[in-house]
């Protein structure tokens, strides 16, 4: 378990030789021991092809590799940090919300259209996720940033969870998401309740929701 929360906005990671960490560039606050920070030109894993993939997908955030032995403290922009432990599942998260993650996790990008075709692409646009989102798969921990605290809501089959697209942070597990609309005549005449679009998540897994409708 490499990430340990120090307070709600800072995490501490232990780095041991032979184990890499990736973190958002510039997110290091302090470190102890002998640790080196190398800007990752390719922005993560997968070599040059992976880099091109992320550039095209607009999911390329400047990352750096953290190696050596010691402890490193991470934090960024005063945002709340939430540590997610993965045990073989896949975490779906926007690249700019990633603070740091285990180097052992497999990084990838997912096309929103691959879940629900055109509606998936529309969903990406509405939620501000764009056409692509980042996936992390494997065993390890991820530190995710959110505005305000994060609550975890379990998703069980037959019990879908609806989330405000602006408050959605990330989700994991075998979850299908779908944009549900509740547009009636009230929205048309500008008297909407402000909840016209919702993200419907169904399947088995967990969704992370932030206590705010603000983007990072």
């Amino acid at each position: 378990m490499p990430f340990r929360p120090l307070n709600s906005r800072m995490v501490e990671a232990t780095v041991v030789p032979g184990q890499r960490l990736f973190s958002q560039r510039g997110a290091m606050l302090a470190y102890k021991g002998d640790v080196s920070f190398t800007p990752s030109i390719t922005g993560g894993q997968g070599g040059v092809l992976g880099m091109i993939g992320r550039r095209v997908a607009n999911e390329a955030t400047p990352l750096m590799t953290v190696e050596g032995s010691g402890t490193v403290m991470f934090g960024h922009g005063g945002h709340h940090v939430h540590v997610v432990e993965l045990a073989g599942e896949t975490l779906y998260v926007e690249a700019d919300r990633l603070l740091a993650f285990d180097g052992s996790l497999q990084q990838g990008t997912m096309f929103m259209g691959s879940q629900g075709g055109v509606m998936g692409m529309v969903r990406g646009q509405v939620t501000g996720q764009g056409l692509f989102t980042t996936t992390l798969k494997g065993r390890g921990a991820v530190a995710v940033m959110a505005h305000g605290g994060v609550i975890e809501l379990p998703i069980r089959s037959g019990r879908p969870v609806h989330v405000d697209p602006q408050a959605y942070v990330a989700h994991r597990g075998d979850v299908r998401s779908k944009l549900s609309t509740a547009i009636g005549w009230r929205e048309m005449v500008g008297r909407g309740s402000g909840e016209a679009f919702q993200l419907e998540l169904s399947g088995e897994g967990t969704v992370y929701v932030q206590a705010s409708e603000e983007k990072l």
Binding site: L153, P160, D164, G194, V209, E213
Partner: peptide, 18 residues
């Protein structure tokens, strides 16, 4: 408050009260 829902489980309807 309008637009303050962040998530829900179950069935909900939202209606603005003028």
């Amino acid at each position: 408050k309008n637009g303050s829902m962040v998530a829900y489980e179950g069935d909900m309807t939202f209606k603005k009260m003028s």
